[in-house]
Write a protein that binds this DNA or RNA. Structure first.
Lengths: 141, 141
DNA sequence: GTTCCTAACTTGCAGCTCTAAGATATCCCT
DNA sequence: AGGGATATCTTAGAGCTGCAAGTTAGGAAC
C-alpha cells in the first residue's frame, strides 16, 4: 500500500478513494453518481455556459461532456437550449431543482471532506492551495 | 477552472491531467498505458504477489486487476503461475524485460513529476507526506 | 453568394473502473 | 471421506474516459 516516492500513484489512489466515498453518499442520498454531480456543480459555478466551457472547467474532453449532458438532460436538473448568441452551441443552465440539489448535497460533501482532512492532521487550506498550484502548473490556469 | 473550496474537484482534475501526461509519455516511448505501467511498478514493489495483493496495493478491485493481468500476460513483461503455496491464487512476477522497463520508464516518470512539482514551488516532500496521510485516513493504511 | 475556415458538438471504438454474481481451490470440522 | 466455510479469481453488465473522425453553424474573403 506504500509507494515510495511515487506521488502520482499516491494521488491516484487518494482520488479514487475519495470518489468512491462521494459516490456512495450521492447514490444513497440522491441516486446520482459523483461525476454527474460534479457536472451539476460546475454548471452552477459557471452560471450559464456552453459544453465547451464545461469541458475546460472540468478538464475533460468535449465528447465526455456531450454524453454527460445527454444523460443529465432528462432529469429536470438542468436545461439545454441553443445558445442565443448563435453558433453551434448549447446553453446549459441549472433548473431550480438542480440548484437546490447542488446546494444541499454540495455543502454536505464539502463539509465531510473538510472534516476528514482536518481530522487527519493535514492543513486543509495549505493542501488545497498546493493542489491548485500544481493544477495551474499543468496547464490548467 | 477554479473550484472554490472544492478540494475533491481540484484533486480529480490534477490527477487526470497527470495521468494523461504520463499516458502520452509511456505510449510514445513504450507503447503502454499509464495504468498498465502502474501495475508493473507495483508488481515490482511487491516482488512476487497474488492478484489480491496487487488489488489492495493499487486500491482497485479484483476484477480490474484480473483483466489487467490478462492483458499484460502476453507481453513478456510479467509471468503468471499458480501460487506454489496453494489455494486458488496466481503468482505474479516481473520478467527481466519487465524489470528493465519499470526501472527505465519509472525513473523517467518520477523524475519528470518531481521536476514539475518543484518548479511550481510546491514542496515535494510535504505534499507527498500530506497525500499519504490523507490516503491513510481514508482507510488505506 | 459561393467558398473556405473555425469553433462547438456528436458518434464510434477501445481502455479502465465498479458492483454483483459465478467458478475454483484449499482448509476445517464432523 | 463428505460438507461447509473462506479466500481468490473470473465473468457479465454498465458507467465514464480519451482519441479520432464526422457533423453543424456561423463568419470572413473573394
Amino acid at each position: 500500500m506504500n509507494h515510495p516516492n511515487n506521488l502520482g500513484l499516491e494521488l491516484h489512489t487518494l482520488v479514487s478513494r475519495l470518489e468512491r466515498a462521494g459516490d456512495r453518499i450521492l447514490q444513497a442520498g440522491h441516486g446520482m453518481s459523483y461525476r454527474r454531480f460534479m457536472v451539476l456543480v460546475t454548471v452552477g459555478e459557471l452560471e450559464a455556459c456552453t459544453q465547451r466551457a464545461l469541458a475546460d472547467s472540468l478538464a475533460v474532453t468535449e465528447p465526455s461532456i456531450s454524453r454527460m449532458i445527454a444523460a443529465l438532460a432528462g432529469t429536470g436538473l438542468l436545461t439545454v437550449a441553443p445558445d442565443p448568441a448563435g453558433g453551434n452551441r448549447r446553453r446549459i443552465a441549472l433548473t431550480d431543482a438542480g440548484r437546490k440539489l447542488v446546494e444541499r448535497a454540495g455543502t454536505e460533501l464539502i463539509g465531510r471532506l473538510t472534516e476528514l482532512v482536518e481530522s487527519s492532521g493535514v492543513p486543509f487550506g495549505t493542501y488545497l492551495a498546493y493542489t491548485r498550484r500544481l493544477n495551474a502548473a499543468l496547464g490548467g490556469g
